[in-house]
Amino acid sequence: MERYKPIIEDWQAFREECKNKEAVKAVRKNPLKAGDNFEDRLFDQFPEAEKSGWNPQVYRLNSKESAGKSMLHWRGDYYVQEESASLPVEVLNPQPGEKVLDMCAAPGGKTTQLAAKMENKGLLISNDDNAQRLKSLHANIYRTGSTVARVTNYDGRRIPKEQKYDRILVDAPCSGEGNNARRTFESADEHEYENLSEIQQKLVENAEKLLKDDGVIVYSTCTFAPEENEAVVKKIIEETDLTLENIETDVPHVRGVEEFEDKDFGSEMSKTVRIYPHHLQSGGMYVARFRK
């Protein structure tokens, strides 16, 4: 992780958070299932729980108890999700009745969040190319009552283009440093960055072809590597008709980096968002938003 020292201002806080602490367990309320008494039930089970400061659907449990072992979870009243992981869907902001594509949907955290924000109205295509991961995607869709979700199993780079979408989420496969940092505190290797960034770029390029005019694409990863984040975004704005939009959010974050090592990504990257583990005692996340 030392390679990120020049771009992470509060290096000490970052390092300490990754090395010494467990992420705070968080859950996202599922309004498709949760009743009016959700908070009472949640606080009953997790007395130390508190609402997230920026996302009213997210609760930090502050408990050692497993969030996956409660009646509320069994019923699908909440989804166990790292606090930072709920940002991409908030930024995409899908509306009820719209046509939305989740290009890399398994295991379903963001797809069930999309369904909830869409109030189960409209069209949600929840795609994933990994057939084995569809099992967990289905289980989570069923448990949360996300009836709007239609599951497909295409390679995201080759989803048929007849249907155009209002909004597309490309939560791309990545090296996952934002989650792995707590386990190994080691960055991924160069070849991995290279392979992944090529796939990531092609996913967004296909998403552009699937997007309606004036539609929105959100690109996200859970890695710190600029090769998979700002470098991909730079290529996209250079090689497609997509424009980068500024993300305004109350979530603790820093802006995307404009340069790293010998690479220059440009000042536009300040429109994108990086969340480091110490910001929310959560995982890492990178988010960019494009409009066609």
Partner: peptide, 18 residues
């Protein structure tokens, strides 16, 4: 299957709703 009141685009589906 129970799903949203919307027509399906011409894709190969694994599941449609619940």
């Amino acid at each position: 299957w129970l799903t949203s009141n919307h027509s399906e685009p011409d894709l190969e589906y694994e599941t449609v709703g619940i």
